[in-house]
Amino acid sequence: MGGLTDDPAFLATTFVVIDFEATTPKGYPAQPIEVAALALRYEHGAWTAAGRPFASLIRPPAFAPVTPAVTAQTGLTPEQVRQAPTPAEALSALDRRFAAGKQYLLVAQHAATEANLIYNQREHCPVLARIDFLDTIPLAKYLVPGLPNHKLDTLLAHFAIKQPADRHRAYADVGVTAQVFLQLISAVDGDAQFSDLAALVKIAGRTAKCNMPAQSGLFDI
């Protein structure tokens, strides 16, 4: 490789692929029921895992039960999450994985979904909530514009990545999203349009909601 993967900022960054499964109760924001994360670094010309993967079920609040529709989508049942860690327990455990002074970017397929879930749980994961995103969808749109859509299943088929048996579980989806991400990085490496991390962020970056400027009131004096 070359170009992007020679950039010092790129080499200094740990890329954390993250995925949530959630339930969407009427009248409330989506509530996480599972989270998984996989940290990757590019070192000595190859990708390596940075530490152990993280995965946890999450017990949703009473107002956000696991519905039959969620079970049909994810395979998760109310019984599986009944004794799971609370959002505070699960997300604070994930938050502790991030070391002070290191540079991170979160990687997600349709990052807005993960960004909203993290923002709504920010009191439990204040470090995680301040990390910006790379979204695989705009990067894929830039690189393979002719696809009928850029959903994860479409990208898996395009890159000949095998569908996991437990697709729509957080850990499985993190694994295949990571594979898509590495394919995309391989495709842009050496492209003059992607000479450094800043160029990659310009195309695919998404600012964490906690890092967005606060909007003052319309009639503030």
Results as ranks from 00 to 15, higher is better:
Pro29Trp: 07
Lys102Val: 14
His150Gly: 01
Glu79His: 13
Ala22Tyr: 04
Leu105Pro: 03
Ala208Cys: 15
Leu117Ser: 02
Ala204Leu: 04
Ala93Cys: 13
Lys141His: 14
Ala37Asp: 00
His158Asn: 10
Gly27Val: 09
Phe20His: 13
Asp7Tyr: 06
Ala55Thr: 09
Glu34Cys: 06
Lys202Gln: 05
Ile118Ala: 05
Ala214Trp: 00
Val70Asn: 00
Leu40Trp: 01
Phe10Met: 05
Gly175Leu: 03
Ala157Gln: 12
Ala88Thr: 11
Gln121Ile: 07
Leu40Met: 05
Leu76Gly: 00
Leu57Lys: 03
Pro32Asp: 01
Asp191Trp: 13
Ala30Tyr: 10
Gly51Asn: 08
Tyr104Glu: 14
His168Pro: 01
His124Glu: 07
Gln215Lys: 04
Gly75Met: 01
Pro60Trp: 10
Glu79Asn: 14
Gln80Ser: 09
Ala30Gly: 06
Ala165Thr: 07
Thr154Pro: 00
Thr177Val: 08
Ala204Ile: 05
Leu11Asn: 15
His150Glu: 06
Met1Asn: 08
Glu79Gln: 15
Asp220Lys: 04
Phe133Trp: 10
Phe159Lys: 04
Phe133Ser: 06
Asp153Thr: 15
Pro85Val: 07
Leu91Tyr: 03
Ala64Asn: 11
Ile221Lys: 12
Lys26Ile: 15
Arg130Thr: 09
Thr207Val: 11
Pro8Tyr: 12
Tyr28Gly: 11
Gly217Ile: 04
Gly101Trp: 11
Phe54Cys: 02
Ala170Leu: 09
Val144Ala: 13
Leu128Cys: 08
Leu105His: 08
Pro148Tyr: 06
Phe219Arg: 03
Tyr142His: 11
Ala111Asn: 03
Pro164Asp: 03
Phe10Asp: 00
Asn116Phe: 09
Ala187Glu: 09
Thr23Ala: 08
Asn149Phe: 10
Val107Leu: 15
Ala12Ser: 10
Ile161Met: 10
Ala46Thr: 14
Gln83Ile: 13
Ala39Asn: 03
Phe98Leu: 01
Gly101His: 10
Ala88Gly: 10
Phe219Gly: 04
Tyr171Leu: 13
Met212Asp: 01
Pro29Asn: 08
Ala157Leu: 12
His124Cys: 11
Ala157Asp: 15
Ala129Glu: 07
Ile131Ser: 03
Ala165Ile: 10
Leu134Asp: 00
Arg97Gly: 05
Arg52Trp: 08
Pro85Gln: 04
Asp132Arg: 02
Ala88Leu: 11
Thr48Asp: 06
Ser195Ala: 13
Thr207Arg: 10
Thr67Tyr: 12
Ala129Met: 12
Tyr171Asn: 12
Gly75Leu: 01
Val174His: 00
Ala100Cys: 07
Tyr42Met: 14
Asp6Trp: 09
Val66His: 02
Ala178Cys: 12
Ala172Arg: 01
Gly175Lys: 02
Leu117Phe: 06
Tyr104Asn: 13
Gly146Asp: 07
Thr24Leu: 15
Asp173Ala: 05
Ala84Pro: 03
Ser92Gly: 14
Pro61Met: 13
Ala160Phe: 07
Ala22His: 04
Ala199Phe: 04
Ile137Pro: 04
Gln215Thr: 01
Ile221Thr: 11
Ala178Trp: 02
Ala9Phe: 06
Asn120Met: 07
Thr113Phe: 08
Phe63Pro: 12
Lys26Ser: 15
Gly217Phe: 05
Thr5Glu: 03
Ile203Arg: 02
Glu114His: 08
